[in-house]
Amino acid sequence: MPDQIKLAVNGTLMRGLALNSNLVDADARFVREAKTAPDYRLWSIDDQYPAMIRVRQGGAAIALEVWQIPPEGLVQVLRQEPPGLCIGKVRLDDGEEVFGVLGEPALCEDRREITSYGGWREYMSEGGAAG
């Protein structure tokens, strides 16, 4: 669909998690599971949701989901995101570049880095967060 935007999500917007209904209510459709290129780091924001940032060094591939969403739906979802999360371009491990949810660097200061888990679901499965 030409009027759809691909959006990569790496936290509570993913299927089965707390804010997934924000995507569904915005007429988004799940496309596939994916991973980022190994250029990202991930932080837990008070064990409520993650924040991901692209870095020059020390990054890893982070698990995420790719969705298709209409432009007006993207605006709707972004308005519901917590402060400090924003939309930027995310490079996937297959070289594709899509829009994605990222964290502002200031949001991650003094937070627990969880990059080594490889993703939010993996962090939650280890007992790190409630979902």
Rank of each mutant, 00 (worst) to 15 (best):
A37M: 00
A37D: 02
A37K: 03
A37C: 02
P38Q: 05
P38L: 00
D39I: 03
D39V: 03
Y40Q: 13
Y40K: 14
R41C: 07
R41P: 02
L42R: 04
L42A: 11
W43I: 07
W43Q: 10
S44T: 14
I45T: 07
I45L: 11
I45Y: 05
D46H: 12
D46T: 10
D46L: 08
D47H: 15
D47A: 15
D47W: 14
D47C: 15
Q48A: 10
Q48P: 00
Q48K: 09
Y49E: 04
P50Y: 07
P50H: 07
P50D: 08
P50N: 11
A51H: 01
A51P: 01
A51M: 04
M52P: 01
M52N: 03
M52S: 07
M52A: 08
M52I: 11
I53C: 08
I53K: 06
I53W: 04
V55F: 11
V55Q: 06
V55T: 09
R56S: 12
R56E: 14
R56H: 12
Q57F: 03
G58Q: 05
G58C: 08
G58D: 12
G58W: 06
G59D: 02
G59L: 02
G59Y: 02
A60V: 11
A60G: 11
A60C: 10
A60I: 01
A61K: 04
A61L: 02
A61Q: 01
I62Q: 14
I62Y: 14
I62M: 15
I62E: 14
I62G: 14
I62C: 15
A63D: 13
A63S: 13
A63P: 04
L64I: 12
L64C: 15
E65C: 03
E65L: 03
V66R: 07
V66T: 01
V66P: 00
V66Q: 03
V66S: 01
V66A: 06
W67E: 11
W67N: 10
W67A: 07
W67V: 08
W67C: 13
Q68N: 09
Q68A: 02
I69R: 01
I69Q: 09
I69M: 07
P70D: 01
P70L: 01
P71N: 12
P71H: 11
P71Q: 13
